[in-house]
Amino acid sequence: MIDRRAYWTANIRYVTILLLVWFTVSFGFGILLVEPLNEIRLFGSGFKLGFWFAQQGSIYVFVLLILIYVRLMNRLDKRYGVSEDEDSAE
């Protein structure tokens, strides 16, 4: 018996956390906080930090977020026995 409710709750929790990060790096650091962050330079380079998040950093984080999501969900699928690998066992 698959515990659908628990699986779905865990899924929603992962998605919520990842989307909070998604919002923070783009809308937060790249737009709302861009001016204070622009006072800081990224590792002594020519990048103002807010500008860097808006044009570079947010995109790198987006890629990471999806990679993390894929790993978390594959593990979750296995734990709840809903992974597609189980299909053949039916």
């Binding site: 998605v15 990842l18 989307l19 998604w22 783009s26 790249g30 737009i31 861009v34 500008f51 808006a54 044009q55 947010s58 995109i59 987006f62 977020l65 999806i66 999501y69 894929v70």
Partner: peptide, 25 residues
């Protein structure tokens, strides 16, 4: 972006951030 500078960031974040929504939701 070359002509808009920082304002051009809307395209960079907008057209990549959508994939996070796509993948997760």
């Amino acid at each position: 972006i070359s002509f808009a500078g920082y304002d051009g960031s809307v395209y960079l974040m907008g057209w990549t951030g959508g994939y996070v929504l796509l993948a997760l939701l």
